[in-house]
């Protein structure tokens, strides 16, 4: 049990949020226009992630070519200085490979891969700072970068983590909270109630799952709105520039 008061009787969490509030979510798109086809930078609380998309482009190896659809390749790099303790990480740690495959399989379904046969879409993720919700942050960053790259997708995939403290579900956990309670990450497709990805790694009572999922989905929709706002704002700026010329 933690010595910290994760959820006070007044209904406040360590960082002053209430149970259903997101952390500050800021995103930018087209941050690296000269080094990639699409790029994004997100800050979800203190978690900071850069995502760059290359492609659809010719695969470097002929053997990777899939003649019916595009293949998605994700490279994860988590900076050694992203956590308080500086850690030397091995590149092929099992946990990272799991995250990578999870993301690849998620986006294979939401990108319209069949429009880009014989190509590869390379996604490079750089995690600069970790403060909970790593998988969620990465999913959101990839969604934005793919939109910026102009890759056809069926819908937004917005992800969020939610946890359970005693009986109360809490939205968007930070590291301190993640370490002390069971935490669930979900990826929601657009405005629907469909889950593209789902990951629960700690114990959670079956009967309380529904309430955690419910606030997770609501939070996912909120994140989608915030991402959509940014994309539209960026689009408006660009189109107004076109008018001026």
């Amino acid at each position: 049990m933690s010595r910290m008061e994760l959820y006070s009787p007044e209904g406040l969490r360590i960082d002053g949020r209430r149970w259903n509030e997101l952390r500050r979510f800021e995103c930018r798109i087209n941050t690296h226009p000269s080094s990639s086809d699409g790029s994004s930078y997100i800050e979800q609380g203190n978690t900071k992630i850069i995502c760059m998309v290359q492609g659809p482009m010719e695969p470097s190896l002929k053997s990777q070519t899939n003649s019916s659809k595009a293949s998605i390749e994700i490279n994860l790099s988590i900076a050694n200085f992203s956590t308080i303790e500086r850690k030397k990480r091995l590149k092929n740690e099992k946990r990272l490979i799991e995250l990578k495959t999870t993301l690849e399989r998620t986006f294979e379904q939401s990108v319209i891969c069949k429009l880009y046969p014989r190509t590869v879409i390379q996604i490079n993720l750089h995690v600069l700072c970790q403060d909970g919700g790593l998988l969620a942050g990465m999913t959101n960053a990839i969604t934005l970068a793919l939109i910026d790259a102009g890759v056809a997708m069926y819908d937004y995939v917005s992800a969020i983590s939610a946890g359970l403290y005693d009986q109360t579900p809490l939205l968007d956990l930070n590291t301190l909270e993640e370490n002390d309670m069971s935490c669930l990450t979900i990826g929601v497709v657009g405005k629907s109630e469909k889950l593209a990805l789902l990951l629960l790694e700690d114990k959670m009572p079956l009967d309380l799952l529904e309430s955690v999922l419910a606030i997770g989905i609501a939070g996912g929709h909120r994140v989608r709105d915030l991402m959509d706002n940014e994309v539209r704002k960026h689009g408006n700026i660009r189109s107004s520039r076109l008018v001026d010329q």
Binding site: E98, T101, L200, K203, P205, I217
Partner: peptide, 17 residues
């Protein structure tokens, strides 16, 4: 009645219900 783990590694989106 404790869920130990849930893992849906991408793939087809499914409904919560």
């Amino acid at each position: 009645r404790d869920l130990i783990q849930l893992s849906k590694n991408g793939g087809l989106p499914i409904d919560v219900m």
